[in-house]
Design a protein around this nucleic acid. Structure first.
Lengths: 228, 228
DNA sequence: CGCCACATTGAAGGCAGTCAAAGGTGGTGG
DNA sequence: CCACCACCTTTGACTGCCTTCAATGTGGCG
């Protein structure tokens, strides 16, 4: 397991913090591990803490009455989540689940609020990161409301390729950090439809798939599809 | 036109502010009027200010490539909007348009950021209100992804009825503060589909419509529909 | 090898968007 | 006061994307 302090140091919120401050924060929180598939919090539970991912991956999702999920976000090491539930001061508005074996650091509500209140640098960073998330959500709403699945998938592929694609002779290579059922839930559809849409993209030569790797080949065509 | 100071006093952000502080804020901003249909800002423009509605109504919306709109929010007197664009520090992520004749107060970026930085009470209020908006957006995403139009409409009616419905012998009476085309865009559909769905609700005796007023009659049935 | 979760493929059906046209309503000016 | 016009709302017929249901394929692991 990675060192907790090391990871906290790298979370954007605590960048440039003195060691003593971090030590204080760490002393007031706790560390807990979850095995793959464990529920971290459920929608409707009182929000008792925000979390920093030390190791592993966490999905935050909404559940439909028929059991279908919509994945709002997947968080990895160094990222903080569920802060806004703490600020809104009520209950968690979604579910949190470990999708790999995961270790989390707890920032308990009262301590965290105190920290924000007495540290305007943190407050501003929080505001900025919340604003960014708000922007992401607005984009998601736009996509869901105005675009069809192929456009959403193309948009996702472009974003991922840009964020962490590796250049190869054939195109931008990228590895998904979730399985396809989860990807389907992330772009607001189901695995069958995703499968068919990917097939069409492959047929058109836009992408290629090779043992768990996707190769994005025709960026500009994908951009056209993502537009409309 | 209502008095600007009076309205600012009532915006949640500035509650309990001393007169001198408000005066300072007002001195640093400006007031501007828009006629119905005017664009206040466009998606992609640099965010220069946040706004407080003094009078009128403003819709904030996303535009699809085919011209269809999705309305993210409608703001009325005393509400602040576009703050998060200022915090994210980039461009406006959506369009803002006056849907009635409207007067706005401008909180210019630098002044506003200074204010937040030097006033932890404002920072916390902002965080809380952003968290609430985030929660609203998450609910919208859930609805769009997991529910069909009738469920979204039922949910909207219930929320509105609860928020500002007046009790009458026939049921909860409420007046929409937008036209039906806008309502359609708000719940993620188009006016034709909204019209048909409302017709079905009327047929089932769930609601009644009378010269611009809606009467919500069977709350529990609507709740069932909103669920699934 | 057999189990299980995940992925793919096929067929069928429905919800909702598109296109088109006919009401309805409010505002303006003659 | 009424005629006209622009805009919104409603209704009808049609199309298509996506979900649903069902069956088969695949890969990892005990």
């Amino acid at each position: 397991m990675p060192n907790v302090t090391d990871v906290l140091k790298k979370t954007s919120l605590f960048l440039n913090f003195a060691d003593a401050e971090l030590e204080e924060i760490e002393k007031n929180g706790k560390t807990k591990s979850y095995s793959k598939g464990s529920i971290i919090f459920s929608q409707g539970q009182p929000a008792i803490a925000a979390y920093v991912v030390i190791e592993g991956k966490v999905k935050v999702y909404k559940l439909g009455s028929d059991g279908r999920q919509y994945i709002l976000h997947i968080f990895g090491p160094g990222e903080i989540f569920a802060e806004s539930a703490v600020f809104a001061g009520k209950t968690y508005p979604a579910f949190g689940e470990a999708i790999t074996d995961t270790t989390l650091f707890y920032l308990f509500k009262d301590n965290f609020l105190w920290l924000v209140e007495h540290n305007s640098s943190i407050a501003l960073k929080m505001l900025s990161s919340q604003a960014t998330r708000l922007r992401e959500f607005a984009a998601k709403i736009e996509d869901l409301s105005l675009k069809e699945v192929s456009a959403r998938l193309a948009g996702f592929l472009l974003e991922e390729a840009q964020k962490k694609g590796k250049h190869t002779p054939k195109g931008l290579e990228l590895k998904l950090d979730m399985n396809k059922t989860q990807l389907a839930a992330f772009i607001g559809t189901i695995s069958e439809t995703l499968s068919r849409t990917l097939f069409r993209f492959k047929n058109q030569g836009l992408i290629e798939e090779k043992n768990n790797y996707l190769i994005v080949k025709k960026i500009s065509n994908l951009k056209d599809i993502a537009q409309s």
